[in-house]
């Protein structure tokens, strides 16, 4: 449907900047208007990109959890240290067109599993475990970057 949500948000930003901001006469109100402009841009970016980033994020988590499962399969000591992480969550079949609510629920399970692995990861590690630890941290870097794409935004 036209206008799209992104177009409507741009209209809100225009009116806030051009119709309302010039009429504001206190520093507090100016600050709130600036925050609103950011929040509108954040909403726009989420509308445009959140779904694809959530798909990417869950696929990323699946890959890393597969690596954890593989490492635990050949390293009993690591498996023992990690306890019983919910690695089965990584093999739940991926739906071709998942609704956002499914992606969010799936992400919560996947991230919880990974978070449990990070929390239980042993301090003493051999080379293979160190490699896995770096892979976990690589996911964290990519996840931080994905969030930044939605949050570190400048109103257009």
């Amino acid at each position: 449907m036209r206008p799209t949500p992104a177009e409507i948000i741009e209209g809100l930003q225009y009116s806030l900047r051009n119709d309302l901001q010039p009429e504001l006469h206190s520093a507090w109100a100016e600050r709130m208007a600036g925050s609103m402009l950011w929040a509108l841009e954040h909403l726009k970016q989420r509308w445009l990109h959140e779904h694809e980033l959530a798909v990417e994020e869950n696929a990323d988590l699946r890959t890393v959890l597969d690596s954890v499962a593989a490492a635990v399969g050949v390293d009993a000591a690591l498996g023992q240290a990690l306890g019983a992480p919910d690695l089965a969550v990584a093999s739940i079949p991926v739906r071709p067109w998942p609704p956002a609510s499914d992606l969010i629920a799936e992400n919560d399970r996947l991230r919880s599993a990974l978070d449990g692995v990070v929390e239980a990861f042993p301090e003493e590690r051999d080379d293979a475990a160190n490699e896995l630890w770096r892979e976990l941290l690589g996911y964290i870097a990519r996840q931080t970057e994905r969030d930044d794409r939605l949050i570190n935004v400048t109103p257009g």
């Binding site: 709130m32 925050s35 950011w38 954040h42 630890w133 941290l137 870097a141 931080t144 930044d148 949050i151």
Partner: peptide, 28 residues
């Protein structure tokens, strides 16, 4: 409230990136 949203979502980004970088560098 809006000020709570911005503090919760926007404000911590630079700190998160710094933490992520230091922890990753320590493991390199």
């Amino acid at each position: 409230k809006l000020q709570v949203l911005t503090l919760g979502v926007q404000a911590p980004r630079s700190f998160l990136r710094r933490m992520e970088r230091i922890v990753r560098e320590a493991a390199a």
